[in-house]
Amino acid sequence: MDKMKTGTLIKEARIKKNYTQSELGDLLGVSNKAVSRWEKGESFPDVGLLENLATTLDLRIQEIVTGIKDEHDEAALIEIVRAAKLQQRENKRKNIRHCLQIVPLLCCILSGFSALGNNSFIFDSKPTWEYVLFMVITFITVVIVYFSNQQSHDNLNKFSTISKLLSTLTLLGSVLSAWIIMLKTANGSIPFGIDPSSIGPFMNNILVITFTVNLILLIIQMYRYEKHDEAVHWGWFISIAAIYLTTLYGDCMHNMNTFQGMIKDLIIRTAIVTIATGISKIFISIVRASNNHFL
């Protein structure tokens, strides 16, 4: 089975029928990106689509499988069986990815609800390291999902760019707000003209908004990954960093003793999230560089 030959055959037959990639995708019930990946030789049509694809493009199934016109039936049958086995393994990997994607979302939701809402919902008092553990699990599972799909991770669209920008802005906004409020309050001044009794709720609202925006972004990014074949990109990791930074900041507020002590805690927690995010980025860069070197 030669995916490049099959892709070329599909493209030639599609053009001969005067179909666009979107039109062919609509006829088959798949996305235009799926058709594009077939034609580029990046993936092979699902075995369940072969009959419909062959009928639509006036090809024989064995021709699609082998990528060669008028191939012997016996050789084509062997290739069909091989393709079915390969796709069965790929479907198993997809099911594992589906399960893995539930883990980071569950960790984020539970951590955020506990830290920014009901502090005793899951953990005992002062559960800082439990949140850190959840963050590590989240980063690890997303890294695994990243490498479980070998599609191009550089082919980003407008939404990917917007999501990275929005997650970065909310992350920086929450960090700056927390530091400005804490430093001004520690020095005896009132930040932003806020009533002293309202400083805690004001800060908590900023953290809740940042957490919510980035959780929504992460959910949308995962949905588009599954439904529209979009790659895992760096925006995922920025959103996760923002989610856990607000979680750790919220936990810090709930367990604050003095403003000076809280500033020290903010430094530690900011460093923890920064280090975890940096390690994920470095690990991905090293592995991708190694793969490109061997390729």
Rank of each mutant, 00 (worst) to 15 (best):
H228Y: 15
P191V: 00
F139W: 01
K126D: 12
Q150S: 11
V35I: 13
K17P: 00
C107S: 12
I96V: 11
Q151D: 14
G250A: 07
C107N: 13
K94F: 14
S125L: 13
C108E: 04
L86H: 13
I190M: 06
R97M: 14
L53T: 03
I137N: 06
D58V: 10
K227W: 04
E12D: 05
M203F: 09
T210K: 05
T247C: 01
G235M: 08
G117W: 06
K5V: 01
M1F: 07
K11Y: 00
G278R: 04
F259T: 05
D124Q: 15
V81M: 15
D229T: 12
N257S: 15
S198R: 10
K16H: 08
Q21K: 15
L295S: 15
T8Y: 06
V103F: 12
V143G: 04
Y146E: 12
I10P: 02
E39S: 03
R97G: 14
R224E: 11
M253H: 02
L27A: 04
Y146V: 07
E90Y: 09
L50P: 07
T128W: 10
H72N: 14
D154K: 14
F237Q: 02
G188N: 02
L27V: 01
I162T: 10
I96R: 10
A241Q: 11
V136Y: 04
I78A: 05
I180D: 01
F159D: 05
P104F: 09
I220L: 14
I238K: 06
S160R: 03
D195S: 06
K126R: 13
E51N: 12
E226T: 09
I240W: 05
T161C: 11
S280P: 07
I286S: 03
